[in-house]
């Protein structure tokens, strides 16, 4: 077992051990906090597919995150009120229905955004993904049907057969299992022919094109899968907060997702989890110490970018094998 794999294993066990211990000690809030870590890590793992493997710096992944959240919120509100949704479909409070809908919709929007954005590259790509996310954001703020700026409350957390989702520990376990599945999927993709092509397209576009692979198609596929995973995380996040609002779509959210990846270590399998854990811990600890916590959070981020290249995992496990 390599050193990085050992650290990954420890991280995965820690994320399970902390809430179990907290639950046992009667501190359910830390279970909630761990759930937040798991969900943010899933969202960032999705982004890591595009950003870490494909080198596609998307500054608009909040669009998919928020979209997933709104799928959960809108289906739940229709399920609650009994009013039919479009095309005669009715709402639902069943997570196993909500998740596929969130994934498919995020994928479709990912296709639309990716198809245009991937015609550009470099800074243009960063900015056009930001612009698309802003477009979705303003739409959500101004569209009155689902609460606009006020957002949408999910009064009772959505259901999963056989699980009491309102209990923090049960909901955490759902998220934990999905996170591990997502990380597993990331590993499978990275090792696959498709994953190799995606990474090759990042490292040398010309060489990839000469061996007959179209970088555009590979990247678009990668971008769509990335959007789907982030969308699923959004649906879980809405259920965690029992609330969804346009702030899930804001550019600060997109920035935070990037931050998580870099804090943990770009392109690394467990980078997003390490980053999410660190970020939530900072936010929680600093928020308790000082009103000026955003200043210190910025300072820490800056120091990590300048002096700790490779993020937390880079520090612990040494340089990544791939560039």
């Amino acid at each position: 077992m390599t050193r990085e794999n050992l650290i990954n294993l420890i991280l995965a066990m820690l994320l399970l051990a902390v809430p179990v211990a907290a639950n046992w000690l009667g501190q359910p809030f830390y279970v909630t906090l761990a759930t937040r870590v798991a969900i943010l890590a899933l969202a960032a793992t999705g982004l890591n597919l595009a950003l870490g493997l494909g080198g596609l710096v998307s500054f608009g992944h909040a669009a998919f995150f928020g979209l997933g959240g709104y799928v959960a919120g809108i289906l739940a509100s229709h399920g609650f009120s009994g009013e039919p949704l479009v095309f005669g479909f009715s709402g639902t409070n069943q997570m196993w229905v909500i998740w596929p809908v969130a994934v498919v919709l995020a994928g479709l929007v990912g296709l639309a955004i990716g198809a245009i954005s991937l015609r550009t590259s470099g800074v243009y790509f960063i900015m056009i993904t930001l612009a698309f996310a802003q477009m979705v954001y303003y739409f959500a703020v101004s569209w009155p049907a689902y609460g606009g700026e006020d957002g949408l409350s999910i009064l009772v957390r959505n259901q999963f057969p056989g699980v009491m989702t309102m209990r923090p520990m049960s909901f955490f376990l759902i998220c934990y299992v999905i996170l591990l599945t997502g990380i597993g999927l990331f590993a499978v993709i990275r090792a696959s022919r498709f994953g190799s092509a995606l990474q090759a397209a990042r490292q040398n576009e010309v060489r990839v094109a000469t061996v007959g692979i179209q970088p555009y198609r590979i990247r678009l596929t990668g971008f769509i899968v990335s959007a789907m995973m982030t969308g699923l995380a959004g649906a879980l996040f809405a259920d965690l907060n029992r609330f969804v609002s346009p702030s899930m779509l804001s550019w600060h959210m997109s920035g935070e997702l990037i931050v998580l990846i870099i804090l943990g270590g770009t392109g690394r399998l467990f980078g997003p989890l390490a980053g999410a854990a660190l970020y939530v811990a900072f936010e929680y600890a600093l928020g308790g110490i000082t009103e000026r916590w955003q200043f210190f959070l910025g300072l820490i981020l800056l120091l990590v970018v300048l002096f700790a290249r490779g993020g937390l995992l880079g520090l612990l496990a040494g340089r990544a094998r791939h560039g």
């Binding site: 990037i258 000026r292 959070l297 800056l302």
Partner: peptide, 22 residues
């Protein structure tokens, strides 16, 4: 790369905003 630049200057926004309020 642009990724590091985005992140570092994003961190600067947090520091400037809170610093001005300070």
């Amino acid at each position: 790369d642009h990724l590091d630049q985005v992140l570092a200057t994003f961190a600067l926004i947090l520091m400037f905003s809170e610093g001005m309020r300070w």
